[in-house]
């Protein structure tokens, strides 16, 4: 239960959470397309969209600080690139437009992913005729992220309790051996999962 941080609020109960995932997927997608294609002379539409998203956030009962901290983390790279646009002619306008658009898009997707369990998103993608192979891989990946994080935490703890002096070089080698070990365990687990899937008739 410790890895809730990944999609902690996607399973709570609210009017937004109860919406069919397919509808949410389409609404979000159309909204993103709209946000990036509305010409700047209709700038007044952006605060309006922002207001709608805020309303949805309130309805969804997801804690507001949680959503905003997510948003803030993701804004870093956004600001980084947007800064480069300041160097263009009319840079300020461009900067403001970029920041507004990308923030609204981020907001939309964050709302979507935090109000829809990943399994339901995959189900919706399946109905949209996504390649089944990719969907199987995505489902497996999502499932085992949690297991691998656990495994990595256990390895880190075991290592920390055994290592005393940590200089720069040994920190890198420790990190690398951790990653290497994690890869070995992943491949071994993949073998066992393959056996378990075959045992239940997978073909």
């Amino acid at each position: 239960m410790r890895h809730d941080f990944l999609d902690k609020y996607s399973r709570i109960n609210s009017p937004i959470h109860r919406l069919p995932s397919m509808a949410k997927l389409w609404i979000s997608f159309s909204l993103v397309v709209a946000i990036i294609s509305i010409p700047l002379r209709f700038f007044f539409l952006f605060p309006f969209i922002g207001g709608v998203l805020l309303g949805a956030l309130l309805l969804s009962r997801i804690p507001i600080p949680f959503i905003f901290s997510r948003l803030l983390i993701l804004e870093f790279f956004t600001v980084g690139i947007a800064m480069l646009s300041l160097l263009r002619p009319n840079g300020t306008m461009l900067f403001i437009a970029l920041m507004t658009r990308s923030t609204l898009c981020l907001f939309t997707v964050i709302l979507l992913s935090n109000s829809t369990p990943f399994a339901e998103l995959l189900e919706a993608l399946k109905r949209l005729k996504f390649p089944p192979l990719i969907l199987t891989i995505l489902a497996l990946m999502y499932r085992y992220i949690f297991v691998l994080i656990d495994e990595m935490e256990r390895m880190t703890r075991a290592r920390e309790s055994r290592s005393f002096s940590v200089n720069r070089r040994s920190r890198w080698t420790l990190l690398a051996s951790l990653i290497g070990q994690l890869f070995i365990r992943s491949t071994e687990r993949a073998e066992r999962i393959y056996a378990a899937m075959s045992a239940r008739g997978w073909k």
């Binding site: 995959l122 499932r143 085992y144 687990r189 378990a196």
Partner: peptide
């Protein structure tokens, strides 16, 4: 029917 030792190996679906 085979029940594997580590439940994480056998529980490979999202729900």
């Amino acid at each position: 029917g085979l029940l594997f030792q580590d439940p994480d190996d056998q529980l490979f679906c999202p729900t």
